[in-house]
Write a protein that binds this DNA or RNA. Structure first.
Lengths: 150, 150
DNA sequence: ATGGATGCAAAGCCTTTGCAAGCTT
DNA sequence: AAGCTTGCAAAGGCTTTGCATCCAT
């Protein structure tokens, strides 16, 4: 890893190593805050900006990419060999991943038909997970959804 | 429309009518600022917050939904009967829509297999559009990509 | 008259950046 | 030594909210 960065003109530092290691040890969809907390547990002298900048760096060198699930918080996904999509539960905010290799193939073709050269794909589904649906069916009453504005 | 809103407990006002009309007259992927500018051209007394709140209202009543393309700006897409995905050109920022009815079917099935009840789908592809690819091929030199951090 | 709607201005929040000091190479 | 990194704090940029006032019902 150190060598990998060196070839790109970056240096390795204790903080950077800690941040990189922490990021890759954590699951997917990591936010800056989450990574910051995690890093802090091992070294509480690391600054927020450093974590942020290194997360960006991880993206720049192609090891991760940003994910937006629409809650205003940027999350980072490790880039894996297997393309995957996300199922976001709007109730408990959990995320389920699923393989989208075939879909990506179809997408690439559709894009190509329009002269578009695809680079990355984002496939996300919002809905309710199994557990939450069960809860809603039993615990909650059946009145209509909220419509109000603040 | 007025009746539609009334049934949901909302009132119709001149501003609201103007904002709704403007939104539906504009294309897809409208941002608050864009809508605000558009509305202002017809009535420069309308406040930003009003536009913002009404855009949110349009979403609440199910006529539009937020779209995040990762540039930090929330855009709003009119909800149409035909599900569509987006091809975002990272060069010229243009957006091309494409039909994803079949894909949505596959997605719904995949989600169902995991006990997930899908609600909405987001299918986005980032890449380079035809025009920009042509430009890059001719105009630009071939040196390697940027890797630098600010 | 009543409760939602509006406008303005001010918070909020997360993301970025400026700088001086500290470390790799 | 030279330049990338780091930390802190401050600045940005877009999204939300507080409030007093106004207006549709």
């Amino acid at each position: 890893m150190k060598e990998f960065l060196k070839t790109k003109g970056f240096k390795m530092t204790p903080q950077r190593e800690l941040i990189f290691r922490s990021f890759f040890e954590m699951g997917e969809h990591v936010s800056v805050d989450e990574l910051y907390d995690r890093v802090r547990r091992e070294d509480n002298s690391v600054g927020y900006a450093t974590v942020w900048r290194n997360l960006k760096l991880i993206c720049r060198v192609g090891l991760a990419e940003e994910v937006n699930i629409g809650d205003g918080i940027t999350r980072y996904d490790r880039v894996t060999k297997v393309p995957h999509g996300h199922l976001f539960c709007t109730e408990c905010k959990s995320v389920i991943e699923f393989n989208v290799e075939q879909l990506v193939g179809v997408l690439a073709q559709k894009a190509g038909e329009r002269g578009f050269t695809p680079d990355s794909f984002k496939i996300e589904v919002q809905g309710v997970c199994e557990g939450c649906r069960a809860l809603k069916a039993s615990g909650s009453n059946g009145h209509s959804e909220e419509t109000g504005l603040p």
